[in-house]
């Protein structure tokens, strides 16, 4: 499996200042994992997400957010751990 340079874990709502900073710091071999209120980005029409995006499934379920597999892959806690292990470094926003 391809390794990830930086895994960005983003738990802030789309309007939060850290959300913008996170998106603008994403680079080619990075991956983005949306957790908690970060998953609202998937239903926010004011945003376009590109690249390698994951979303934590329990947080999607809690908020009744339909996971759109073409935008983000829904993963559970075990897969989140595996993802973290694949990344050379992790930034928790």
């Amino acid at each position: 499996m391809a390794s990830i340079r930086t895994l960005h874990i983003l738990n802030k709502r789309p309007g939060h200042p850290a959300f913008k900073s996170c998106l603008s710091s994403l680079e080619n071999q990075d991956a983005l994992l949306l957790t908690e209120n970060g998953v609202l980005a998937l239903v926010d029409k004011g945003l376009t997400l590109e690249g390698c995006v994951y979303a934590l499934s329990p947080d999607l379920k809690a908020r009744a957010i339909p996971g759109d597999a073409s935008v983000a892959q829904a993963i559970d806690y075990d897969e989140m751990v595996a993802l973290t292990a694949r990344a050379q470094r992790v930034i928790s926003w």
Binding site: L40, P58, K61, R63, A64
Partner: peptide, 20 residues
């Protein structure tokens, strides 16, 4: 604003140990 997300139907908050 973000508050409208309260209104989404069929939230399963048990997934994060909360009440819907």
């Amino acid at each position: 604003g973000d508050g409208v997300n309260w209104l989404r139907r069929e939230q399963e908050a048990a997934a994060i140990s909360q009440k819907a």
